[in-house]
Design a protein around this nucleic acid. Structure first.
Length: 601
DNA sequence: CGGACAAGCTGA
DNA sequence: CAGCTTGTCCGG
């Protein structure tokens, strides 16, 4: 109640271009609290919004309009605060984050949720587990922030059960994030079958059903399972967070604000004083930088990575074509499901020495070099240029290594002697998915859940992609492939990698099932070259970018580079410096994309 | 974002 | 100068 006897609340309208709060009168007899979703009259029209503060002292004499309607429950006060933090961290607007945190249909009241059917404790759950499995799970659950490195083939279900049991012991609920909808649904079903009251909060085209799950999460479901957006799901009493496959790019929002679910839940858990376990076969440097690493014994990790076989393409018989080694053709003819991966979506073309077939790479950062003008070789990653001479044999002639997926499919079909299916991100072509042998971009790895052989036809495309995370992402692909073939059980089950760089650290890491060494060398390289997570970066683009950059000026600690193709790059030693500086800029009108922590760079 | 309102343009 | 388009401003 304010000084003059009026009840006033502060509302953030759900209008894309307004990041401003407005005060409204609460009509007599109306109950409303922070987090509720309301409708208000704003500038002659009726819009939705969130109550972000109650019992507000309005400016004296200000004529206030009454709330038009209290429509239902919305995000909790903690999540509203979290959205404020994320708006700073990713230079975005709170409304877009709160929309993600809100139910897609009206939730008038919260349902009653059942208490857990049984009271499992962590020790009972782990009693039958292998000793090393029990050890790493216990160890991870004892830490405030743990990165648990589990090989691709390892079963994560026991960890999730133990995390849920531990949450019950702590008197609260457990939030579990999965990279894909299918995994989240599957995990939700398993937990429900095990007697854990579980809310599966996943956006789809059924708003009523999603809102019902949202409501049961808000009401205190013991486990809340979902994908990226569930970082914002309601959790009545957050006791623990688990992020499965923490390395997955699906956790980062593509549209600005480009928030990352892992980073959102880390902050959310920190505020709630809840521990977090990040799980991955190949943890990101970001995760390793903020959490304590827990690893299984070497033998479990080797078993869980399965067999990774590397073919040196420099030794290939040219008569078979550049993409198909005899070994590959042999495996493709054999029994079982075979997936061939060929990434040809990037614009980068690779050059190899015409004499010795060694790839043309940058002397400074080992990235791929292109030959844009025919005179010199320029690195697509760091910009260094050098004369067109092979570093291995001194040869001066180079050949272009590009071949499309469709052409490769025809060639493979001829070599194997049976129909070969094709999968690309653009074309679903479900009817071709049942072919025994399939070829496609990496999308092929996401369309099936098991395979007997996964073959990367030209892995250099991944190793040398002109992105600073290329090495990390290349190992992610191998982990994904390894998981698919782990379910095979056949003797020929393996991941086959064709490359001209057989001793690349990524391939050594996968063959030895030891991602740790790679993380160490990558961390050194990123620091030396000034890439995240050694620094904090942002990209600014769009029609209004120039005006934004002008308003940004040159704040201390932030380096502004560009424009390159209409985009500027900001670099600062840490997010504190970067985000504080970005927060001072008044957004100019017009289309503007502020991308903090850009994935491709 | 989208309504309000002002300034600019057109044709009788 | 009414009647319409286009542009800029700002919201309780």
């Amino acid at each position: 109640m304010s000084a003059d006897g009026r009840r006033v609340v502060r509302v953030l309208p759900d209008v894309a271009a307004i990041d401003k709060e407005f005060d409204y009168l609460v009509p007599p007899g109306v109950a409303v609290s922070v987090g509720d979703m309301v409708r208000v009259d704003l500038h002659g029209r009726r819009v939705g919004g969130w109550v972000v503060a109650a019992d507000v002292e309005p400016e004296p004499g200000m004529a206030l309009r009454p709330l038009a309607k209290v429509s239902g429950r919305g995000p909790s006060p903690e999540v509203i605060d979290l959205a404020g933090w994320a708006a700073w961290r990713w230079a975005g607007r709170r409304a877009s984050l709160l929309r993600t945190a809100s139910p897609p249909a009206v939730v008038a009241t919260l349902p009653q949720v059942a208490p857990p059917r049984l009271e499992p404790d962590v020790s009972a759950l782990l009693a039958d587990a292998a000793p090393d499995t029990a050890r790493v799970i216990r160890q991870a659950l004892e830490l405030d922030q743990a990165v648990l490195r589990l090989a691709p083939g390892a079963d994560r279900y026991l960890l999730v059960r133990a995390a849920v049991a531990d949450s019950i012991a702590r008197g609260g609920s457990c939030l579990v994030l999965c990279p894909s909808v299918e995994e989240a649904r599957g995990l939700g079903r398993r937990l429900i079958r095990a007697g854990v009251p579980t809310a599966v909060v996943i956006d789809d085209d059924r708003p009523r059903a999603v809102a019902a799950e949202w409501a049961s999460a808000a009401a205190g479901a013991t486990a809340v399972v979902g994908t990226r957006s569930s970082a914002w799901a309601p959790v009545a009493n957050l006791a623990r967070v688990v992020v499965l496959d923490e390395h997955d790019e699906a956790y980062q929002q593509e549209q600005a604000p480009t928030w990352h679910a892992r980073d959102v839940v880390l902050e959310r858990a920190r505020r709630a004083d809840a521990p977090v376990v990040l799980v991955s076969p190949c943890p990101t440097l970001e995760a390793l930088g903020c959490a304590t690493l827990v690893t299984t014994d070497r033998q479990s990790e080797r078993l869980g990575w399965g067999r990774v076989e590397v073919i040196d393409q420099r030794d290939l018989d040219p008569s078979l074509g550049p993409l198909f080694s005899p070994r590959l053709v042999d495996l493709a003819r054999g029994p079982g499901r075979v997936l061939c991966v060929l990434n040809r979506t990037g614009r980068s073309r690779l050059l190899a020495c015409a004499a010795c077939s060694t790839l043309a790479r940058c002397e400074r950062c080992a990235g791929p070099v292109a030959d844009p003008d025919g005179g010199s070789m320029v690195c697509g990653r760091c910009g260094t240029d050098r004369p067109p001479v092979c570093l291995e044999c001194g040869g001066a002639r180079f050949k272009n290594l590009r071949l499309g997926v469709s052409r490769a499919r025809e060639e493979l079909e001829a070599l194997v002697g049976e129909p070969v299916g094709e999968v690309t991100a653009g074309s679903p072509e479900i009817d071709r998915l049942h072919q025994r042998v399939m070829i496609g971009t990496e999308a092929v790895l996401h369309r099936v859940d098991r395979a007997d052989v996964v073959a990367f036809l030209d892995f250099d495309q991944e190793l040398l992609a002109p992105r600073y995370r290329a090495v990390e992402q290349a190992l992610v692909l191998l982990a994904r492939a390894s998981r698919l073939v782990h379910r095979s059980g056949r003797p020929e089950a393996r991941v086959l990698v064709q490359t001209r760089s057989p001793d690349h650290p990524v391939l050594v890491a996968a063959r030895r099932a030891d991602p740790g060494r790679l993380s160490e060398s990558e961390a050194v390289l990123r620091t030396a070259l000034g890439f995240p997570p050694a620094v904090a970066m942002a990209a600014v683009s769009g029609a209004a970018a120039e005006a934004w950059i002008a308003a940004f000026g040159a704040p201390p600690g932030v380096v502004v580079q560009g424009p390159v193709e209409g985009a500027w790059r900001l670099t600062a030693p840490d997010h504190e410096t970067l985000c504080d500086a970005m927060a001072t800029v008044v957004r100019p009108p017009g289309r503007l994309r502020l991308e903090v922590d850009p994935l491709r760079l």
